[in-house]
Amino acid sequence: MSFLAVSLLKFGFSQAKKQRAKKQGQQFQDPSAYPQYPQPYPMTEYPPGVAPGSDVAYPPSSEPTSKRSKAMGMLISALRFFQFVFGLAVIGLYGQDVHHDHKAKDTWNAKWVFALIVGFLATSTAVIHLIVPFLTRKVNYRPGAKLQLPRFAWEFVLCVLWLTLFGIFGKLYIGVYPSDSNSDSSKRDATSTTSELGDASKINRMRHAVWVDLVNLVFWAVTASWALLQWLKARREDGPVVFDAEKEAGSI
């Protein structure tokens, strides 16, 4: 009896070892029994000339336009519209005298022609800035850093032109009043020069044109400052791709 019991015990122990080995084999063959790790990033997806471990600056992800950005875009568009309107006003104020000289077959005055050129350049620039947002369907359209700097440079040139125009005609007409017998004596200090500057209607028109020039100067100074800020911001956002050649050579 004892021999039979020992035999049964050995048989049961061997069967238990077989079952345990069978379960372990199935566990090694089942891929779901182990955690799945992410596959390595394929080398073909890397940008050309960039290897793993290099410092790469990627562009920021596109985010929805905030209400503040939309408000600033609408404000700048309003300033562009006023630049267009006041530029046309300058062309109309100074163009009357040029048209009169042309009609009388007289030589055009260089100062009035300069005023027309400045007004035309400013008006054309304002029209371009008003049309571009409609073409791109973006209220707060912002060109890249490569275009921001030329835009600021051009608007700075326009500021210098408006400042020059204001200085020329301000020196001629600020404080000058038309000669009138009914006017106060304090307003007739420049009676001897009014005949050289034109009649009463021309002097009054030019005195108003000087302040329109000043308003244009303020408008373009504001937008030029805005263009400068946008260029500095775009320059910070657009970072170049940095490639460490020494690190790449060491990895090889």
Rank of each mutant, 00 (worst) to 15 (best):
M1L: 14
M1G: 11
F3G: 10
V6G: 07
S7H: 12
G12L: 15
Q19L: 15
R20E: 05
A21D: 07
K22Q: 08
K22M: 06
K23F: 15
G25N: 13
G25F: 09
Q27G: 10
P31F: 06
S32V: 07
Q39P: 05
Y41H: 10
Y46C: 12
P47K: 10
V50S: 07
P52Q: 11
Y58M: 15
T65I: 13
S69K: 11
K70Q: 10
K70E: 13
G73K: 05
I76C: 08
L79A: 15
L79R: 14
L79P: 08
R80E: 11
F82P: 00
Q83S: 11
F84C: 09
V85W: 14
F86P: 01
A89Y: 04
V90W: 03
I91C: 05
G92T: 03
L93H: 04
L93W: 03
G95N: 00
Q96K: 08
V98R: 05
H100C: 09
D101M: 13
H102A: 14
H102E: 07
N109S: 13
K111Q: 06
F114E: 02
F114M: 09
F120A: 14
L121A: 09
L121S: 05
A122M: 11
A126I: 00
A126P: 01
V127M: 06
I128N: 08
I131Y: 09
V132W: 03
P133E: 00
F134Y: 06
R137I: 03
R137L: 12
R137C: 13
V139A: 11
Y141W: 14
P143D: 12
L147V: 05
L149N: 00
V157G: 11
W162Q: 03
W162T: 02
W162P: 02
L165E: 11
L165P: 02
I168N: 05
Y173D: 01
Y177H: 15
S179R: 05
D180R: 11
S181N: 12
S186I: 05
S186M: 15
R188F: 06
D189P: 06
S195E: 10
L197G: 02
D199C: 10
I203V: 07
N204A: 10
R205T: 06
R205E: 08
W211N: 01
W211E: 02
L214R: 06
E237T: 00
E237L: 12
D238H: 01
P240T: 03
V242L: 14
V242C: 15
D244Q: 06
D244K: 04
E246A: 15
K247Y: 15
E248M: 11
G250D: 10
G250T: 00
I252Q: 10
